[in-house]
Amino acid sequence: MDRPHLLYFTVEGIPCALPLANIRQVVGMVELRPETGKRRGGAGTMNLHGRTVPVYSLRSLLGLADRPPLPSDVLIIAYPPGECVALWADGVRGVQESPVELPPGAATPPGALLTEEGVIIIYDLGAFLAAEETAQYPLPPGMAETGRPISSHDAKRADAILADRARAVARAGEGGRETPFSELLTFRLADQEYAIKTQYIREVFIMQEVTPVPGVPDFIVGISAVRGEIISIVDLRALFSIPKQGLTDLNRVIVLTDGTVTFGILADYITDIYIRPTDPFTPVEPGTTPIEQRYLLGVIDGTVIVLDAAAILADPGMVIDQTRK
């Protein structure tokens, strides 16, 4: 049985996970609006592109002490049945296949389980959010239950950053304008971090078996069966002549598609998934990378190179002929 891929994140140092299929995007923490009424774990609401979305504090839901929001926190935009919610967490760790088979239905406590490795997997978000106030969730041994205090000076600066972000996230829904944000998935390859727009990513999985194909370019390591479809697997290091620096563990496959062409690219591991303003990306300085300019969109956060997935997918030499639709 195929195990789902999970988005891993942390709450007060506790590793947690949620099925990737339930998640729409991850955004930086914003200033929250107060709300009327009382919801279990309710922390307020946010304006997401003109839509009012309830925000839940995962600390509160897990029985931990709450604290004020920090700019380093994240909001995981997720979809339990019939609604859109935001889950407040410390940060995102990456995407991995579930280490265990998830229960087919709700159990006790509702919607979540603690693995032997100390990871809390929220496998049924609807049941988890609808649990009674008395629901007790298991925590890893020795877990502290106090939030991190921040100084009044830091709190003022944090509040200003969160207010600016709230205006930026809400602005996209005003007047019907198109959102100025792009969702990005970042990954590590040969000691360098890269990013790709998630609109071109179908899924991420752990590589198991790849069949070599004779007579293809060196950058195509072979073909693999993914959910009944045969796709080619591409090594970007060979394609772009990237020096093989440091230790690598190319066991993650990021499946790219534009609706016509589909193939996988190898990565050491996934580092993050989040949104940021689309333009402008910082231009790539000459000599920074051997990758040709036509495959680049720019740089974010000073060092993360954003690849142009559309250009890579459009390259006729990238895919073995029989894998084209």
Rank of each mutant, 00 (worst) to 15 (best):
D308C: 03
E285G: 12
D279E: 14
V306R: 00
V306Y: 02
I300V: 08
T282S: 13
P280E: 03
G298I: 11
V306L: 00
Y295V: 08
A309R: 05
P286T: 04
T278N: 09
V299Q: 08
V306M: 03
L297N: 09
I291G: 06
P290W: 06
G302R: 12
I291P: 06
D308N: 15
T303S: 15
R276Q: 14
T282M: 15
V284P: 01
V304P: 03
G298F: 13
L297S: 03
D308E: 12
I291E: 02
L307M: 00
R294K: 11
Q293I: 07
G298C: 00
E285F: 04
E285S: 12
A309T: 02
Q293D: 10
Y295K: 00
D301F: 11
L296S: 02
T303F: 15
T282R: 10
T303E: 15
D308H: 06
I291D: 06
V299T: 07
D301Q: 15
D308F: 01
A309D: 03
R294I: 12
I300H: 08
E285D: 14
P280L: 07
T288A: 01
Y295R: 08
D301G: 06
P280Y: 08
D279Y: 15
D279N: 12
T289V: 09
D279A: 14
R276N: 07
P283F: 06
L307V: 07
I291C: 01
T288D: 02
V299I: 13
P286D: 03
D308V: 07
T288N: 02
A309S: 05
P290E: 01
I305K: 05
P290I: 15
T303V: 14
G302M: 05
P283K: 00
G298A: 10
L297H: 11
L296W: 02
T278G: 11
I305G: 06
D301K: 13
P280R: 01
E285P: 02
D301L: 11
A309V: 10
V304E: 01
P277A: 13
T278K: 13
L296P: 11
G287N: 07
T288G: 00
A309E: 00
L296G: 00
V299S: 12
L296D: 04
I305N: 07
T278I: 09
I300D: 07
L297V: 11
D308G: 03
G298P: 05
L307Y: 00
D279S: 15
V306Q: 00
G302K: 08
V306T: 03
T289F: 02
I291R: 01
F281G: 11
V299F: 10
I291W: 04
T288M: 00
G302W: 04
T303H: 14
P283E: 11
G287W: 09
